[in-house]
Design a binder for these strands. Structure first.
Lengths: 242, 242
DNA sequence: CGCCTACTCTTCGTATACGATTTCGTACTC
DNA sequence: GAGTACGAAATCGTATACGAAGAGTAGGCG
């Protein structure tokens, strides 16, 4: 299995060069090395990774399917932007699937998981002063990942992961713009943990998890008082679930 | 803008050979020409379509991302099967996203849409005697499509389409095995239409739409009294939402 | 007689090469 | 001076070719 050892040691090294390229490009996108709007030129990436254009092409198409890049025939691919409307759609979808995943996962969350989640949430709480949006967002993801990762339905779980990946493009998340929201978020996390620990029914947990995310979305929308009609419509829809 | 004006009636001829291959293979899968489990050999398909293997490969990977085919490195692709567990997961996911899509779509459903939906439902009702599962399933899809197609969130709408596509592999659907369910289904459709017409709130509509699908799933599970532990777990989860 | 091994054959994975399309720069005209 | 048309460069899309990995099969060995 002696891989060509071309600077591969951290993340990729996934046997296939396609997967290798996929992992590499994906990482650079979420790391911010390829900022939104950046053009992804096949030949350049191929040369950079030491492979041909064919695997790179396939990787790009996979990333397109995940919504991380946009593609245009005979023009090329660019890193998917943070268009407010798109952000809104993504958050709404995520609230839906993450709520369900959390509810389905709840019965399978053990005491150890709960303890870990609580620890992460406390770390978030201690992070509130001397606020660092990026770090907070990262902890936020860790927290929720613990709660939904046991979801027995792989399709739903996959959708949750995709949603988080898309949001990873803008690493700052909502909390950069609306720091106040961070405070509420920590409290809602505690509430969610209590529900799970008490064995609340799935519907209640789903509702709480969904509302938690919808509230974050609303906080965002309130600050950027909607720039489009579409935003308003979707906002109203999100509210309806409150 | 100004699409090549192709967009021909059915599916293929989409400018790019990749898209052409994608459309062609997809159609053969949903048509049943490529039955579940059928091996998809790149070279064979390429020759059949008069193109090279590269576009076909890309098409296959896209179909893989949609869950219509399964892929194994250095082995090849096969049409995704109807593994009961997989069916269960798909239905559960579909109940989630279709419920949300229907609720979000409801305020945008006009009188004309309602009339069409009602007409389709009546056609289904008249279809109950002299029962044809395939035809009934098709009408069922038409009915629901009218209700969720106005969903303003393209991501959610796309997820609904993907779910339906996966189910299209087994064209007979649940109704082949549980004809009794067809009767209830028509009644629930009427109820759903009434809710939408009365302008019920989004949560109520989402609940009704989700429950409608969950009930179909349960009917299936009751007949094939679960063959696996996983099935039971997911079934219980689905019930929790009732 | 059954199991293991070596070989071949199919099929995938990737590299290279060439044609097609778009875009950008420049010169020309009104 | 602005707009348009032409041409060159860049980039994508697809075909062909070759190497690699897995699956099936025949033969030998226990």
């Amino acid at each position: 299995m002696a891989e060509p050892a071309t600077t591969v040691d951290d993340a990729p090294a996934a046997g296939s060069k396609s997967q290798q390229a996929y992992g590499a490009v994906k990482q650079r996108i979420v790391d911010g090395a390829y900022p939104p709007g950046h053009r992804l030129v096949l030949a350049a990436i191929a040369q950079d990774l030491g492979v041909s254009v064919v695997p790179v092409r396939e990787a790009i198409r996979r990333l397109e399917a995940e919504g991380l890049v946009t593609f245009q025939r005979n023009v090329g691919a660019t890193v998917a932007g943070i268009d407010p409307t798109e952000y809104l759609y993504t958050m709404q979808t995520l609230s839906l699937v993450e709520g369900a995943a959390t509810a389905l996962s709840a019965p399978l969350v053990g005491a150890g998981d709960l303890a870990r989640a609580r620890a992460v949430n406390e770390e978030m709480r201690s992070c509130l002063q001397d606020f660092d949006p990026v770090r907070f967002t990262r902890l936020n993801q860790d927290f929720h990942a613990i709660l939904f990762e046991h979801c027995p339905n792989p399709h739903i779980l996959d959708l949750v992961h995709r949603g988080w990946n898309r949001l990873a493009s803008l690493r700052s998340s909502t909390f950069r713009f609306v720091p106040e929201r961070a405070h509420e978020s920590v409290e809602e996390h505690a509430h969610l943990l209590a529900l799970i620990e008490d064995g609340a029914d799935a519907d209640t947990i789903e509702r709480a998890a969904r509302l938690h995310r919808s509230a974050t979305l609303d906080a965002y929308l309130t600050h950027f008082s909607a720039s489009e009609a579409a935003s308003e419509a979707a906002s109203a829809a999100a509210h309806d679930h409150g």
